[in-house]
Write a protein that binds this DNA or RNA. Structure first.
Lengths: 244, 244
DNA sequence: TTCCCAATAAGTGAATACACTTTACTGGGC
DNA sequence: GCCCAGTAAAGTGTATTCACTTATTGGGAA
């Protein structure tokens, strides 16, 4: 076995193969609509077809691949409208998650994580502008906030659905670099208010705030795309965002 | 399941095996939390382990099974709170679907199906009470309405998520028999109003109506469970609804 | 008796071989 | 030159086999 596949998830080739293929899709190594050849993949990854098939089926379950009998798996296409829809769907789902969290309450350690993320964001933003690397740092802060809230919702299915929304290409904020200081500032304020609503046990306010919060990300993305189109009129057509 | 694996989906054993196992889970032949043995299943279904594994992986993707490396697949448990949550999640998602449908408009043939389902419901309800079998008929009418609306939302991911909610044991209305005439009457009125909002191109009204519509199903279920518990105090404890 | 551990059975993970389907290619007829 | 059929190649579907992990069971020691 030259270059054993992955290496991360020991003892289970299928899972590490799954991670590799997922990265290849999200990273754009394989394009949308492209067909994934099992024998070719197994050659490249130095495993047999069995774990490759398992990985492909699992990725189809995540909604990243399409399956057709006797025809194999293809990378699912995400046209721009579908990506925009994903934000609406995620806004709705994360809204429900915030409501559940407010109904069920935060555990002390969860509250601690959230308050830490709020404080870290405050510190990062107090300078009044962003320097290089700050956006990456805030991405981590933002992830902590949302992940903890999702855990506080105490519903597995909901978590999985939101995770699927995040895996839609370009739908996750980590795929976006065009955010400006004032966008992040405003979203961080949202976090404060959402936290307030949850500790005050105001479920419906929490839901509304979270919903608007995620929707505003969509609005930012639309603006960023429009600006990019204005800067480079030739390239970056709407279809361009469908994937990599 | 002694018979040879189903004749329905020709040419692909894995898919028919998947249908059989799904029915076994939803029908209660295998209980929640139970472990599914691959060799035993392949013996019973008279196929090799390969299509069985494929089916199990696919069902795990649907959220019906849990997977643990080197430990195989188990039937996921759905305690009563998780079932109730599923209604909230579905209410939110179907609300979004109704909004999308209102934004994008109904195709003539879709509108025809919906108006036919509305008329059929009117006819069934005009007697003022239900006879045996009427509920089954209305179930079909109800399904046509919701399925067509979902198609009109024109978003695949949304459809899949709602489908997952329907497959949560006891979460689909088809699993419930305890609905009374006035419940159905009121829900059919909802259908009329939702249709109105969609043809009038009022997205947010459509969303709100649909959300309330699905939430009212949850309320009916809670009442039905409470009455059942009152009738048979010994049996039918909350945990009882977790599965079959 | 209870706990621990080894031996063994049972079960999943992966590789390989073969069957069947789809697709691509090639040659002949129109 | 185009279309179609037949055939070969490629690719997926399934069965089988072996490797490896996990669960079980029985015996021995504290």
């Amino acid at each position: 076995m030259p270059e054993t596949a992955g290496g991360s998830r020991a003892g289970n080739r299928a899972l590490s193969v799954m991670d590799l293929i997922r990265e290849a899709i999200l990273g754009g190594t394989v394009g949308a609509g492209e067909r994934l050849n099992e024998v070719q993949l197994s050659r490249n990854l130095a495993v047999s077809r069995t774990p490759v098939r398992a990985a492909l089926q699992a990725l189809a379950g995540e909604g990243l691949l399409d399956y057709a009998p006797n025809r194999g798996f293809t990378v699912r296409e995400f046209p721009l409208p579908a990506i925009m829809d994903a934000y609406d769907i995620r806004a709705s789902l994360e809204g429900v998650a915030a409501r559940f969290a407010a109904e069920r309450g935060l555990r002390p350690e969860e509250n601690a994580v959230i308050e830490r993320s709020l404080a870290a964001g405050d510190k990062l933003l107090e300078r009044g502008s962003f320097e290089a690397g700050d956006l990456t740092i805030y991405r981590g802060i933002n992830g902590d906030f949302h992940d903890t809230l999702l855990a506080a919702a105490r519903n597995r299915m909901l978590g999985e659905m939101i995770r699927i929304c995040h895996h839609v290409p370009m739908s996750s904020s980590r795929n976006i670099v065009a955010f400006e200081y004032r966008d992040v500032r405003r979203r961080h304020d949202d976090h404060h208010r959402i936290h307030e609503a949850i500790v005050a046990r105001e479920p419906w306010r929490a839901e509304l705030l979270m919903r608007e919060h995620v929707s505003s990300i969509k609005a930012s993305l639309i603006r960023a795309l429009a600006e990019r189109n204005a800067d480079h009129p030739g390239e970056a057509r709407p279809a361009d965002a469908s994937m990599t």
